[in-house]
Design a protein around this nucleic acid. Structure first.
Lengths: 251, 251
DNA sequence: CGGGCTCTTGATACGTGTCAATGTTGGTGG
DNA sequence: CCACCAACATTGACACGTATCAAGAGCCCG
């Protein structure tokens, strides 16, 4: 994989961050915005398929997803891979590094992806000077935890068909909230291999299961990803409802 | 289940909290200790098998485990249950409630259990006045996330035997760190049904799998729980190593 | 003494994994 | 422009792991 993620100078200023202007994020105070602007160190640009962060490395940075889809994963020594969660704009990466000595998971880009790079050494000063931002970080971590809880329930106790439906409904929900679905298409850039590695299933059985969903008209496969045709139907089949939550923070 | 958890007045003062004195927790400043003491509202005492917190409820409190074993879980409508993680002294419960409108999981006691009860409404003032404590909360949330990552990997990609070994090694590690294992016994108060619901396996198959581990001399079953005889062996079988982490915080 | 739990074990059914082969698509280089 | 290759999707046959069903034993507690 010759293509490496490139760290570039700042091209998107926090002051006119396109994400921040979206209504689903809580607004910043002037002081907070100013702090975040000095907190930001650069940008990381990654092409699809690129590994952005590697398990076991020690990163001096924190990241926020500015654009694109990605995912977090872990692998066992013999190569078995488990995808843990997906990343959409507004998500934060690398908080675990403030706790553990090394990264405990890797990150890969699904689409072209841009990350904001922050200096981890200044993390504590964020807590010191901007309690609201500190609270937001905890908020984000707690929400990630809540998502992982649902994934665990799903992998542990749902059948292959229910699991698949849940994951599709979940991705639709995340993508829609992040505003990256394209109104008519509702396209999700996840291959069946990614599905398999998320669901804890083999690729073959994943294919057969997804086919059932396609036959029922819930999804349609195209261009190495899939269109969500009937999110409600998927939710019903999975027996899942997205939990309500207040306006989310964004750093 | 006639037995309800009882909220009692404070019996253990934060100033002479038995947990805080253990060396694995980071020390508090005077000011922090003072704040936490006023933050604490009471104690919750629960007998084994008692449901301490219920999914879907709106709790005005946060909790820290003071003594005993417990676990977090979710259930599907038809009763299928998934245990998400176990609770030992020093763990915090209910941070998710600061984010989601309702509790997203339930909590049950495995042994007699005591929880410290904190006022959620004062959570923000914790961030405002004690950046260090705010940071600690994020720390705890990030560590929980990291544990859930490992569970996901395990359930999704490990075989029944590997999974069981991982869980046993994991529980041993957590119990040992929390100092609740009893040096010679290394007893873990978890029934095979709990194991099954954690591993995403049926109770019958869990039994057969655990028996293999017992036959190999890695564990021994007794008194509705099990003794960990060979934690190293379990780790090796699972292909798992606990991640190194600095002194943990405790609130 | 009886009634729950929990643990145990064997027989059988079923869901999912593995193997193997084919089709499709998009990109690359001659 | 075409040949080729790599990655992904698809399908069928078969093997294996795990679930389900059923029955019984040990234990604690009322």
């Amino acid at each position: 994989m010759a293509i490496e993620p490139r760290q570039t100078p700042i091209r998107v200023s926090c002051y006119d961050c396109p994400l921040r202007q979206m209504k689903r994020f809580r607004p910043f105070t002037e002081a907070e915005l100013e702090f975040v602007a000095t907190f930001k160190r650069g940008e990381l640009v990654a092409d699809p398929g690129t590994t952005v962060l590697v398990e076991g490395s020690r990163s001096a940075h924190l990241y926020t997803v500015l654009s694109g889809w990605g995912f977090r994963y872990k692998i066992l020594e013999d190569g078995r891979r488990q995808i843990l969660n997906y990343l959409v704009p507004g998500d934060m990466i690398g908080l675990q590094g403030a706790v553990m000595a090394e990264m405990q998971h890797s990150v890969e880009a699904l689409t072209p992806m841009t990350l904001c790079v922050f200096e981890r050494s200044r993390l504590f000063s964020l807590f010191e000077h901007h309690a609201g931002l500190g609270f937001d970080l905890t908020w984000l971590a707690a929400r990630e935890e809540s998502i992982l809880d649902e994934h665990l329930l799903s992998i542990g106790r749902r059948s292959a068909l229910e699991r698949s439906s849940y994951l599709l409904a979940f991705l639709f929900h995340r993508g829609a909230n992040a505003g990256i679905l394209g109104d008519n298409h509702r396209y999700i850039p996840v291959t069946q291999m990614h599905f398999a590695d998320t669901l804890g299933l083999s690729i073959v059985h994943t294919n057969k299961t997804l086919k059932k969903l396609a036959d029922r008209g819930l999804i349609r496969w195209r261009d190495r990803g899939c269109d969500i045709l009937d999110p409600q139907g998927l939710q019903a089949l999975a027996g899942w409802m997205p939990a309500e939550q207040p306006a989310r923070p964004f750093i």
